[in-house]
Amino acid sequence: MSVAATVGYVLVYLVAVGDLGRASAGVVGAGGGAAVATTVAADPLARALGGEAVALVTLGPLEVLVAPATLGVATGLGLLVGANLGLSALAWRAPAACGVSPASGLAAGLPALLSGTACCGPLVFLVLGVQATGTALTAVAWLRPVAALLLAASLVWAAWRLDVQASAADSSGKTLSGT
């Protein structure tokens, strides 16, 4: 389940930032119309180091930009979401578990999904139908780090709860066996 959650989060993240979507016919060349095609950027190493996409891959009706920096962020956040979900599920199955919900782990990953930007302005403002301000732009810039922090905090919380419950169950068992 954790692996599925990680992969799912990465895919949703890529859609949210506009790197994954429906393939277009293209203007000229660039693999337009082909079932499987790859367009590699010039000087891909420099592009990768600059945070740029190094290739566009078309897979039938879908196309995806291969941007190492974006994929790294998506995978990092996805792993945190997956770990959260796995640990939360473990806690949920434990008989005495309380205060740990899989939903909290997932919710922590949401801010990063809103942080997709392109061209002149953060598109989240278009989606929300509000005007961008300096404060709002600053807030957008913090969405990804905030998501990472929330996910890490959620993970620590879930682990701590599990540990507490395990200790409680352990000591309870000792008491019973001692009587």
């Binding site: 979507g21 393939a23 660039a30 590699v40 950027a41 290739a55």
Partner: peptide, 13 residues
Amino acid sequence: MTEHTGYARRYGS
């Protein structure tokens, strides 16, 4: 002008 810009972009979107 074509999509051969030296960059990888989803030009159809």
